[in-house]
Computed example of a mutant assay.
Amino acid sequence: MKKRILLLAGGQSGEHEVSLSSARSVLNALPEEHFEVTPLVISKRGRWLPPEGTALALGQGAAEDGGELVLHGVSRAGDYDVVFPLLHGPMGEDGTVQGLLTLAGIPFVGSGVLGSAVSMDKVVAKDVLAAHGIPQVAYRLVTRGAWRANPEAAMGAARELGYPLFVKPANLGSSVGISKVRAEEDLTAALDVAFGLDRRVILEAMTAEKPRELEIGILGNDAPIASPVGELRFDAEFYDYHTKYTEGEATMHIPADVPAEVAARVRELALTAFRALDCAGLARVDFFYVERTGELFLNEVNTMPGFTTTSMYPKLWEAGGLGYADLVTRLVELATEDR
């Protein structure tokens, strides 16, 4: 019998359009003889759209906000074997939708509430990974309330890290809201941008020289496996939103041209991080590699990475011998395993 899959896409985060692109790829790639896939788009206001609204959103871009009630889709989800919450960022990848589906008793692709929530918040994830001895760049947390009450404390934290540094919203992906700050006089503007997107912001030190960016895919539940290591190359100062989503601005190299011992260490650290954060199903783990010194720093763990046919995560597994349709099939199987 065909597996009935409810594919959730869109969502309320700044990565709404990225999610729609991923969903279009899944819909076009899955073999109809094995799957009966029903898409359901969540608008930017959190409405679970009816079929006509979903079709419009997937055909023409962002979802319109007219439509059905916020939680109407939950009752519909119970009609399916598995839900694929192909949602990126807050209100989708952060444990909120995972909690809803868990309460409803519906199997779903990806990490559960704990793994999703902890991995989404860059600061909490880094705190957990630090406890497991995983190397990372130095970082500091600044909250919106603390910044308003005592801006000098945030300035002091930045001075401790040293300039230049990065300012990032703690709970967004796709490089949304990230600024490279070269001097103290630019810090306030960067924090204003980040606090406009999240009440928690992370300050991150830079490596001594521009690192190479390595990425690896993890697949599995209690016995996860790692893909070949890939590398992103680009001319921009860092992997910002424009570079990430503008064709030709960045290139993927799979497998990455790194020494065998570096690739092995990346796989080891990625699997350790996956288990430490209680991830399940899938994750893409990103690293900085300083070639001159051989240093590796874990950058972040994405529990629902971009999933177009040209995205890094599916390409990593394609290099590992698992094609796009087979990869999604495996994720559906993992969703129904006892965890």
Rank of each mutant, 00 (worst) to 15 (best):
S25F: 07
S25W: 06
L27K: 05
N28A: 15
A29Q: 09
A29G: 12
V37T: 11
T38W: 01
L40Q: 07
L40V: 07
V41D: 01
R45V: 06
P50Y: 07
P50I: 10
E52D: 15
T54P: 03
T54S: 10
L56T: 14
A57C: 01
Q60W: 13
A62E: 14
A63R: 02
E64G: 10
E68H: 12
A77T: 13
G78Y: 05
D81G: 03
D81Q: 04
V82P: 02
G89W: 05
P90K: 06
M91T: 04
M91L: 10
G92A: 08
D94P: 02
T96F: 06
L100W: 09
L100M: 15
L101E: 14
L101D: 15
L103Y: 11
G105W: 12
P107H: 09
F108H: 09
V109F: 11
V109W: 07
V113W: 12
S116D: 07
S116G: 01
S116E: 09
A117W: 04
S119T: 02
M120A: 03
K126E: 04
A131I: 05
G133E: 12
V137K: 13
V137Q: 14
A138M: 10
R140I: 12
V142R: 04
T143I: 05
A146K: 04
A149D: 14
P151V: 00
P151K: 12
A157N: 02
E160R: 08
E160M: 08
E160D: 07
L161K: 05
